[in-house]
Design a protein around this nucleic acid. Structure first.
Lengths: 226, 226
DNA sequence: TTGACAAAACAGGACAACCGGTCTGTTTTA
DNA sequence: TAAAACAGACCGGTTGTCCTGTTTTGTCAA
């Protein structure tokens, strides 16, 4: 007999939080791999091992599920992959460089590119529903704000003056988003390095210790796809 | 009686090319506005006023229709919006600037943003099917090549040396793609101008006549949505 | 502690609408 | 007169949602 968690016939254990998390896990993965419309709730139920009634109890509609994925998972992915590393870096430019390189390295090691979760959903859902659009736009805004604030903090210490923080943040987010789009289409992460190199041409930096902030990134979910 | 084109009951005129064009028109528009999966062939038939048999005669499957849209329409849009204006400009940098500004201006005048057709479909279809991915990657490649070649030609005349053409092209395409992604999510084309400004910081340009190449762009299709 | 009881959590089937594709048949055209 | 072009019905499968039950769990008086 295989030792499964709790396949006992006569007993059942209610685990609302665990079940909700399990559904969000598979939904996040499916939306990232196949997109929103191409992921049926039947697929999600099967992948998560959740009954229709249970899923409907936690997420009344598919839209509600997607909104939860956006608010809780996509936002967290941006926070973990971009905002936290940039804030922890020695400077904004250094943080941006570290993230670009870390993501490129992981993608190359991984061997395939599924794209940026935020941009993937943004393209598919921004025009589909105002609620989707507002949620996604908010994540973009937070992303840009974090970078702009970091650069502004740098300038308070005399670093990197002469660069407009808002423009720098916009260009950084755009370059990364577009690079991931191309990387996904070409299945080649090299374009990330090209864009980073082009981006750093505009740096007035003299020279700084190149201590790469080694942080795990989370643009691409679980490597093991069962 | 309303004067319709040809609603005569007893007569019919075969117009293969016209019917094919009509289908591609509505498909291009629907894919841009709602995406591939959200556009049913029933919707397309109704919008184009085409029977199921006719549509199936020209495009046996939905995938075949999408591939035709990509090869004939999306590629043409990139050519018209980006490649031709850049090639016609005084320099690569000048062409890039002109396109960014022209697109931003049109979007602001239009009042809403539907995004870049290439990136819209790239995000939704790149992982869905290898044929889609290859077709889309090819358009990206042509786009980058045109910009890189233009910059290389500039350098043959001594202009803008010290800039790597491939990297410049990659960054330009990425910045535009990402900016359009954000513009779509925020429904605000201002980010295009922010990115352009950030992009031009890396220019070693002394000064050149700012003759804006005024060309119609075609990122967003027909303004009138019936 | 117990027992009652309402709410939450979960199971699983039912259903109408819709999807994309196919099929047969008719009309036009080379 | 055969092939191309078009019309329109048809079908099996899928979609998202709802619905009716059943089980578990928390609560609170006794």
């Amino acid at each position: 007999m295989i030792a499964q968690p709790k396949p006992r016939p006569g007993k059942r254990i209610n685990d609302p939080e665990g079940m909700r998390k399990k559904v969000l896990d598979v939904a996040e993965d499916a939306f990232q791999a196949r997109g929103y419309h191409a992921s049926s709730i039947g697929d999600l139920m099967a992948a998560a091992g959740v009954s229709g009634g249970a899923l409907h109890h936690h997420f009344p509609t598919k839209k509600a599920l997607a909104l939860a994925v956006i608010d809780e998972r996509v936002a967290a992915a941006v926070e973990e992959t971009w905002i936290a590393p940039v804030l922890a870096a020695a400077s904004a430019r250094e943080g941006v460089r570290a993230v670009f390189e870390a993501v490129a390295a992981q993608l190359e090691q991984q061997g395939f590119v599924r794209g940026c979760p935020l941009n993937n959903l943004a393209h598919e859902l921004s025009l589909a529903d105002p609620d989707f659009r507002i949620a996604l736009a908010g994540i973009f805004a937070g992303w840009r704000r974090a970078i702009a604030d970091k650069l502004h903090a740098d300038q308070q210490v005399g670093k990197d003056e002469g660069t407009d923080p808002e423009r720098f943040a916009a260009l950084t987010v755009a370059a990364y988003s577009g690079a991931m789009s191309m990387a996904k289409a070409t299945q080649d992460a090299g374009v990330l390095r090209d864009c980073l190199a082009g981006l750093e041409r505009s740096a007035p930096s003299p020279s700084q210790g190149a201590l790469a902030a080694r942080r795990r990134n989370r643009i691409l979910p679980r490597p093991g796809t069962p």
